[in-house]
Design a protein around this nucleic acid. Sequence first.
DNA 1: CGTTCATATGAACATGTGTTCATGCGTTTG
DNA 2: CAAACGCATGAACACATGTTCATATGAACG
Lengths: 111, 111
Amino acid sequence: MSLENGKDPFKAMRKREDFEEALYDLAETFRVLGDLTRVRILMALVGSESCVRDLAESLDLSDSAVSHQLRILRNSRLVKFRKDGKNAMYSISDEHVATIFREGLEHVEGL
Amino acid sequence: MSLENGKDPFKAMRKREDFEEALYDLAETFRVLGDLTRVRILMALVGSESCVRDLAESLDLSDSAVSHQLRILRNSRLVKFRKDGKNAMYSISDEHVATIFREGLEHVEGL
DNA sequence: CGTTCATATGAACATGTGTTCATGCGTTTG
DNA sequence: CAAACGCATGAACACATGTTCATATGAACG
């Protein structure tokens, strides 16, 4: 940003807009997490990276479905991947994700 | 709580059916959180309970929209409420929710 | 080479979802 | 009491979304 914070009369407004944008991103992240297939994929990736084919087999899904969902997870930075020959190895990208999962599980346990 | 025993909370799940069901509930909870309107409502409720009318006004939403969304949040045990005369006072129901929000915000900050 | 394997992607379809509108219901207030 | 208020809810509509199917790409391997 080019304006100095101290002299910008719209500083407060920009901060509010930044907050609204953060809320939008937060909702978007939860929206991505709010699908059983993606939750199962992420759970399978907790602690052990895996390729598309193995995920599809262990979760009983089509390769295509897994690939589609992994793209969505990738776009939300919830998983990262590296190429290994003709395989694409996926893994959890973020420590916060595990925490979110743990807290979420504790929440549903309390139901 | 059964998940409080230390290193790996996921292994605390004993039966596979229970685990699958927990994943379903987890995805359902995230699905509910994955909507901007509901995120804004929850943020407004963090730290201060509020009634439908005030939420609608401060968030620039219709009473009906707020009420519909609050019902969804209620069904997921994300908010609780008490009747106060003709008002319905809503508040965050679960301390895990605040943690989930905090971790989620840190995640989106890292984008 | 050509074939096979792993992955990606677009289109299409069916299903799910959030909002608005209209209305109902209980409680407070004049 | 009657009117106003706060809230809830069903129907309907517009829109988003996940899966499947077909196909494309690109790397290993005979």
